[in-house]
Computed example of a mutant assay.
Amino acid sequence: MERVSSLPFPASVYAARLERAGALAAEAGIDAVIVGPGPDLRYLLGVEGDTIERLTAVVLGPGFEPTIVVPRMELAKVRDTAAGELGVRIADWVDGEDPYALVVGALPAAGGRIAVSDALPALHVIPIGDRVDARLELATPVLREGRMIKDADEVAELRRAGDAIDAVHRRVADWLRAGRTEREVAADIAEAIRAEGHETVEFVIVGSGPNGADPHHEVSDRVIEDGDVVVVDIGGAVPSGYNSDSTRTYVVGSPTAEQAERIAVLVRAQQAAVDAVRPGVTAHEVDAAARQVLADAGLGEAFLHRTGHGIGVSVHEEPYIAPGNDLPLREGMAFSIEPGIYFPGEWGARIEDIVVVTANGCVRLNNAPHALASVG
């Protein structure tokens, strides 16, 4: 019986990603790259899982065939990924054997420049380093390049995720009202994230009243009150592993005049940053576009974080839309635009969309209304 693949993309896509990683390594003068479990390995081969005490890693680079080192107890899972479909060489091992010797055996030589993925822990990096005649370095400059530029299939998955999270935001008014706790609202939202097409819930932030002034507040047992401004920042992964991430700000009842005015400025700041996106513009310049609108309105000090982050198989990845980042944007980059304003002890607000850089600008992947929404 022919095996039906559970991978989100054809095996040829993963073959091209491996080839691209090898070419990028060659351009950087890297002789070999060792990639452990995490977003990079998921991107390259569709291999899921987290780093554990038993080493799993793929060894790749210019001019030689990749090898995946894997515990024998995980062999069936690995064979059910692109590694199996592509016939990637597998070096399996059992407890009591030395997996690091297998890594060294897969390298083209004991010396040269060897880079490791940033998700590979010291638990494995140090034993590898002890066995090679090389100073290990981070593979991030090589691996991020492939992941930063999304192809049409990846953009389609991000759009699918964006549509799904928009559908959840359009239902928030059903659950957000005075008398309920943040945790109760978050539970309803999490259920809807799955119901609207996500496979996993990556995060749910419901920041009401003063809790909204903490950008990374998640949920609490605080009872939502009439008049609260509420930040709802939510996201998850669709079955392909690509993520959504979108924030809207709500008010229970009616806002004060000051709240309405300040949040209107925030909406303009977010739009200014979106309008600034196009190939060749730097990440810093996009961040500055949002920051300038807020500063002109006297709200510059209330913006506490960067304007955005890349998204794909991770919720947060490169490029980072931040002050001082002179990385020029390129077509196919996908990232958030999410300025916020925060007033400690009072309230906060944030507006966030995912955008993808196009030939002449960008396209939004989130289209739920941006203006302050009155609920309850």
Rank of each mutant, 00 (worst) to 15 (best):
M1S: 14
R3C: 01
L7Q: 13
F9C: 02
Y14L: 10
L18K: 02
A26S: 14
E27K: 14
A28G: 00
D31W: 00
V35P: 00
G36C: 10
P37T: 01
D40C: 04
L41G: 06
L44M: 04
L45M: 15
E48V: 12
P62K: 11
I68F: 09
P71S: 13
R72V: 09
K77C: 01
V78M: 11
V78Q: 11
A83P: 07
G84H: 13
I90P: 00
D92C: 03
W93L: 05
W93H: 04
P99F: 08
L102P: 02
V104R: 13
A109N: 03
A110P: 00
A110Y: 09
G112W: 05
I114K: 07
I114P: 13
V116D: 04
H124V: 07
I126P: 01
P127V: 01
A134E: 05
R135L: 14
P141N: 12
V142R: 12
L143D: 09
D151H: 08
E157I: 00
G162H: 07
V168T: 06
V172P: 04
D174T: 09
W175A: 03
A178Y: 04
R180H: 06
E184W: 06
A187G: 11
A187W: 11
I193W: 06
E199P: 00
E218F: 05
I224L: 13
G227T: 06
G227N: 05
D228S: 04
V229R: 02
I234E: 12
P239M: 04
S244H: 11
V252G: 07
V252C: 10
P255E: 03
E258R: 15
A260Y: 02
E261F: 04
A264H: 03
A269W: 08
G280K: 13
G280I: 00
T282A: 07
T282W: 12
H284P: 00
L294M: 12
D296P: 01
G298C: 09
F303Q: 14
R306E: 10
T307L: 12
I311N: 04
G312I: 01
V313C: 03
P319W: 10
G324K: 08
D326Y: 01
R330P: 00
E331N: 03
G332Q: 08
E338S: 15
F343C: 08
P344I: 02
A349F: 04
A349V: 07
I354R: 00
V356C: 07
A359M: 03
N360W: 05
N360C: 02
L365K: 10
N367E: 15
L372E: 06
